[in-house]
Simulated assay, not measured.
Amino acid sequence: MKTDAFCHLLPREYAKRLFAIDDSPVARNIQKRVSSIPALVDLDVRFRVMDEFGSDYRQIINTAAPPLEDLGPVERTLELARVANDGMAEIVRDHPDRFAGFCAAVSLDDVDAAIGEAERAFDELGAVGVQIYTHHHGGPMDQEKFFPFYEAVAKRGNKMIQVHPCRDSSWADYKTEERSKFEIWWTLGWEYDLSAFMSRLVFAGIFERLPEIKFLIHHGGAMIPHFAGRVGPGWDQLGARTPPDQVEDVTGYPLTKRPIEYFKNFYVDTAYFGAGDAMRTAIKFFGVDHTLFGSDSPFDPEKGPGYIRATIGNLQEMDILSDSDREAIYHGNVTKLLGL
């Protein structure tokens, strides 16, 4: 059994509303970027993609970027969350042989409403988690106003928070420029965003305050496992070289362990797009028990099967894994984590 824990899908009614938005630059951007990927919306196309991987392959789905908060006023984004979640729940309910579950969409413009929508999705629709993003209108996700949301999900025990990056070309590569070039904002910027998200929450004491919380970080934990020397011995020296007038920049929640140990509490997927050596490093850092099979389908050049095939190939070829390790990554870990 293979349960693909991070895949994107747009329910038809949600897609219809998304493509009708004409007053949001973010909406116009995503309309262009996803309009040529039929497997995002057309289930017949998607099922043909999935058939390549046999009857024991299923997906956990969520909506594609961007964050709902970037699509207009709060009334619209709250309604879009409801439409998206109703649509995903129906798809999962109608096709249990194809989909193992869905992670709910929420709009964090109204934190109380986001909590209510998450709880509705859990209790009435059967969602296995929620998806959030690495920024909120460009601001950090360790702001205290978001902790009631984290706490509400953490209290549910077997629900996860999927974390997806979200910057766009308006985030320039250099201070002297207005826009990012060559889609550096996507290729490299998204990985920085995921890493910064993880770091800010670690130093905000998220795992001290909510030890039961379960985050699934997209793209294998991004930069963190590949810079373990800086995350480990580097951050062990946090503040040692900081000027006295900047001490507030390095003051966070009082941690009881080395910073690097908290990073290993995150769960990560295997969405490395065929980069097997990078995936190996991530698995060694986070551990087999914190790694979930996830492909990021259908955003590969083939518009569906490419990243799934490449990810399976990487896992099958990886000599550091036993058969039981592969079984855990493919299906066992997510089953245990979510009580599937």
Rank of each mutant, 00 (worst) to 15 (best):
E117I: 05
D142K: 01
A89T: 11
I161W: 03
I91F: 10
D97S: 14
H137M: 14
S170P: 00
K175R: 11
H95K: 03
S170C: 09
R120V: 05
G87A: 12
D123R: 08
A154P: 03
A172H: 07
D112A: 12
G129V: 13
R167E: 07
N158R: 13
N158M: 02
D94P: 03
V83W: 10
F149I: 04
I184T: 10
K159P: 07
R93V: 09
A172K: 07
R98G: 06
K145P: 03
T134M: 05
A127P: 06
E151Q: 15
P148G: 02
Y133S: 04
V111N: 00
N85A: 05
D123I: 02
H135D: 10
Q131Y: 01
D109C: 08
L108N: 04
E144G: 07
D97H: 14
A105P: 02
E119A: 09
K155R: 15
V163G: 02
A100I: 01
G87Y: 03
R167M: 12
W186Y: 15
L125H: 06
R93M: 00
R120D: 06
D86L: 12
I132G: 00
A100T: 13
F146M: 07
H136S: 11
I132V: 14
E178V: 13
E124M: 09
W185R: 01
G129E: 04
G126L: 05
P96A: 09
A127T: 06
S170K: 05
Q131S: 14
W190T: 10
W185Y: 11
G189N: 08
I115W: 06
F99R: 06
W185Q: 02
D173I: 08
D142E: 13
A113T: 08
V130F: 07
E144V: 12
G157F: 11
P148V: 04
